[in-house]
Simulated assay, not measured.
Amino acid sequence: MTTGIVARDSYYERTGEHTYKPTAHAGGAWQTDEQHFSPLAGLVVHAIEQHLADRPGNLTLARISYDILGRLALDECEIAVETVRPGRTIELLEATVVINGRPVVRARAWLLASLDTSSVADSPHERLPAPEELTPWAMDEEWNGGYVSSIDVRRMPPSRRGRAAAWVSSPLDLVAGEPSTTLASYIALVDTANGVAVQQDPTAWMFPNLDLTIHLHRQPRGPWTGLDTTVTFGPTGQGLTSSVLHDIDGPVGHAEQILTVRPL
């Protein structure tokens, strides 16, 4: 009889220096043979941090914006990272995700120098109730896919359609056998926002997001990602998901997602 550490489940497995294979846990909510964008967003941050791993300096990710260019098939993806604007105090990086030979995501990340501004740190946003104060929500009863089935969601009772606050965590590793930073693991849960405060029944309406932009005024702590979310539908097929982002210590930033709203 042999004993040892049992490997944890993960969203991705590394297949090469810059390539990753998604597992079934990365399956999407709209189509189960596609990737949910949430873990892929975290994987992009993981790749960016590896790109920066051997670099000296004290730069912190302050904004990352993703444009979703095409179908996110549940297939092997390659992530290339390049420096667009180098600098000691401000730097701009770009990451491109390629699946089946086609670019499907482009992301740009602004890195800013870390300074001590604790004496003026402040935010007008109230803290969310702690995760343990909220009731678990079976999100997979309303949404499909391996990703939704993998996460622990604690949601406040929605006050109205399109308005909810929730905490999200995951017991899975981002990449099998590799440590991930708190930041990458945190961002890997942010795209869940579009499903926690729905405006309309997703069996009657589609409202996938075409992008995700995250601004951070503070680096988050894990393991919970807090989403104080508002979803707005306009009259001509566009929508917007807006979230104040939290960790257990309070607000850390904002996230915005533009939606294409279509009847099924």
Rank of each mutant, 00 (worst) to 15 (best):
L245M: 11
P103H: 02
V98Y: 13
A164F: 03
T225A: 15
Y20Q: 04
S243E: 07
L172M: 03
G28A: 08
T60E: 12
L134A: 05
I64T: 14
T192N: 09
L128K: 01
D191V: 10
V252E: 02
I79G: 00
L40G: 02
A113E: 15
T229W: 11
D54V: 01
N100Q: 15
D247K: 03
I64W: 05
E141V: 01
P86F: 08
E132C: 07
I90Q: 13
G239C: 05
P171K: 03
L43R: 10
G70K: 06
T2A: 03
N209R: 03
A47E: 09
E256G: 01
K21Y: 00
S65N: 14
G101V: 06
T192M: 13
P136K: 00
R85I: 12
D75K: 13
A62P: 08
R102S: 14
R221L: 08
H51M: 05
N194V: 11
M139I: 14
A255F: 01
G145C: 11
A165N: 09
H51K: 13
G195H: 00
E76K: 07
P263I: 01
T230I: 07
G87V: 07
P136L: 00
V175R: 06
G253V: 11
L183Y: 14
G145S: 04
Y20F: 15
N58Y: 05
R262V: 14
S149T: 10
R71N: 02
A165Y: 03
G16N: 09
A47P: 02
V6K: 15
V244L: 12
V190P: 03
P158A: 09
T15C: 07
Q219F: 05
A176V: 08
I248Y: 01
S242W: 10
S123K: 06
V104W: 03
S119W: 01
V175W: 06
A176I: 09
P56R: 07
I99L: 14
G239M: 08
R102D: 12
V196D: 01
H246D: 10
A166M: 09
G177I: 10
Y186C: 06
G42K: 11
S123W: 09
S119L: 06
G234M: 09
R71P: 06
H36A: 12
G162V: 11
T232C: 07
E126Y: 04
L69I: 01
G237T: 07
T89I: 13
P263C: 04
D116I: 01
R163D: 15
R163N: 15
V105N: 01
M139Q: 00
I48D: 00
A138L: 10
L172Y: 03
V190L: 13
L74K: 02
L212K: 00
S123I: 05
L59P: 08
E13C: 06
L69M: 02
V231R: 00
P103Y: 03
V120F: 13
L174M: 04
T192D: 05
H51L: 10
N144R: 15
